[in-house]
Each structure stands twice: as structure tokens, then as C-alpha cells.
């Protein structure tokens, strides 16, 4: 049974078609890496999974995307509920201009949770989940901007986890971070996949190879190949994939 399933998805920015007939499924508790050169459509595809592309004017989507067997592009889909279930982490760490504590509590508060004990418990759990607790436990009331880039990014992950999603989308989550912070995030991804289904966009081949179970290679808006990460990186079925992962183009 698939957690996420996209069926013949086409996507348009105005007249430009950005995705062509993408069919791709992901199992629960796996990490899927989306790779490909800039402009290949991997981020666009990622953003379809929590309907983030709805925010862009003049876009059009065809086909269907199912999460837990529900078509998320159906008319009666509650987009707020969908986004609560499908958390997102961005390229650049973007904590809100609030305290560390309030950053994580934000998602709970906007969803109407007012019980202080519940909020406190979830905040602490989420920060522990991203292995940030020891570093911030004494400065929860300080601004999130005082943290380093890597800590900020882990805080953003904690912020996403606090509202208990089941899917986590990561859009090049380490591209703005140094190698040590990057490896911490990668360790975290290993830890998190026990509980979540993760989709990660990355430009870093080694990262895709290290963290993912499956890898999907996009090129010019088309899904060229998707298979077990091991297979993709050792004996890809298609020449284009091999050219890309060996660095011959892209």
C-alpha cells in the first residue's frame, strides 16, 4: 500500500508545462529523493504534495495525487488539514521572528490548541526529536535568530513536526548549511523515517545516496527513472540517469 501516489500529473505555469505525466508512488516510512538538474520540475512536484503551488497565480494541475488513498486535489479537500498532515521544510532556514519556543508552538496555536500543557509537551518533544533540546533548553525564550543556521534549520523541522504530520517534504534542506550541520540533518532524516514518510529534493548526489531508500530522477519536467536508490546509483536502467549521476551533465 502506498502512502503517496501521483497518477499522470501534468502541471502548468501559465502556458509553460513544467511537469509531464508524472506517475510516482512512495511507501510509508521511506525516504524518497528527487534529483535532477535545476528547472527539471523536482521542486514543483514536491510542492504539489501539500498544494503549495496553489499560492502561485495562473497555474494549472492535471491528474491526481493520492495521500492515504485520498485525492488531495479533489474539490472537497480541506487544504489546511492537508498541510497539517504534510509538513514542509525549506531551502533556507526560515524561523519566524519569534522566540525559539513560540516558533515550535506556532503551528499548534494557529490550529486552535490552547492547553498550555499540551503545547509545552509537544514543543519539548518536537525539539527533542530534532536533537536540538540540549542546545536550546536554556534559551527557549530567546529569539530564534540567535541560533546558528544549522540549529535554525533543525528548529524549522521541529516546527513542522509539532503539529504531528505523517509526511515531511524537504526542499533542499541542507543547501544553505555547512557540512557538519548537513550531516546532523542527514542523521535526523534517518531517525525520522521511522515515523514519517519523507520526500526530499536535493542537488547533492551523495546526500541522495546516503539518506534515501528510493530515488527519482527528473529531467525537463519528465520522470526519467525511479527505483531503489542503490539501483539508481549502481546500475541505472536509463543512460540519461547514468550521465547525470556520474556528473556528465546537469
Amino acid at each position: 500500500m502506498h502512502k503517496i501516489e501521483s497518477r499522470n500529473v501534468n502541471f502548468f505555469y501559465g502556458e509553460t508545462q513544467a511537469l509531464h505525466d508524472i506517475s510516482l508512488s512512495m511507501r510509508e516510512h521511506t525516504v524518497t529523493a528527487l534529483i535532477g538538474p535545476s528547472g527539471c520540475g523536482k521542486s514543483t512536484f514536491l510542492r504539489l504534495l501539500n498544494r503549495m503551488n496553489d499560492l502561485i497565480d495562473n497555474t494549472r494541475m492535471e491528474g491526481s495525487i493520492l495521500i492515504d488513498q485520498n485525492d488531495i486535489y479533489q474539490r472537497n479537500t480541506n487544504v489546511d488539514d492537508l498541510r497539517k498532515n504534510v509538513g514542509m521544510v525549506f531551502q533556507k532556514p526560515n524561523p519566524f521572528p519569534k522566540t525559539i519556543y513560540e516558533n515550535v508552538a506556532y503551528g499548534l496555536r494557529v490550529n486552535g490548541i490552547e492547553d498550555k500543557n499540551i503545547i509545552e509537551e509537544r514543543v519539548v518533544t518536537s525539539i527533542e526529536q530534532v536533537a536540538l533540546w540540549d542546545e536550546v533548553k536554556d534559551k527557549l525564550k530567546k529569539s530564534a535568530f540567535e541560533l546558528s543556521g544549522g540549529q535554525q534549520q533543525r528548529l524549522c523541522i521541529a516546527r513542522a513536526l509539532a503539529i504531528q504530520p505523517s509526511v515531511l517534504l524537504m526542499d533542499e534542506p541542507t543547501s544553505a548549511l555547512d557540512p557538519i550541520s548537513t550531516s546532523k540533518i542527514e542523521d535526523l532524516i534517518h531517525e525520522l523515517k521511522k515515523q514519517y514518510t519523507i520526500v526530499i529534493v536535493t542537488h547533492n548526489m551523495q546526500q541522495a545516496a546516503r539518506v534515501s531508500d528510493n530515488t527519482a530522477f527528473f529531467y525537463m519536467g519528465k520522470l526519467i527513472e525511479c527505483d531503489k536508490t542503490k539501483t539508481i546509483f549502481t546500475k541505472p536502467a536509463i543512460q540519461q540517469t547514468e550521465d547525470y549521476i556520474t556528473g556528465r551533465f546537469g
Binding site: F90, N94, F96, I163
Partner: peptide
């Protein structure tokens, strides 16, 4: 991305 992050949390 600030807006997206907030909306992404169901706000």
C-alpha cells in the same frame, strides 16, 4: 517562504 512555512503549518 515565511508565508509558505506558516500556511504549511495549517495557518
Amino acid at each position: 517562504t515565511f508565508r509558505q512555512a506558516s500556511l504549511g503549518l495549517g495557518a
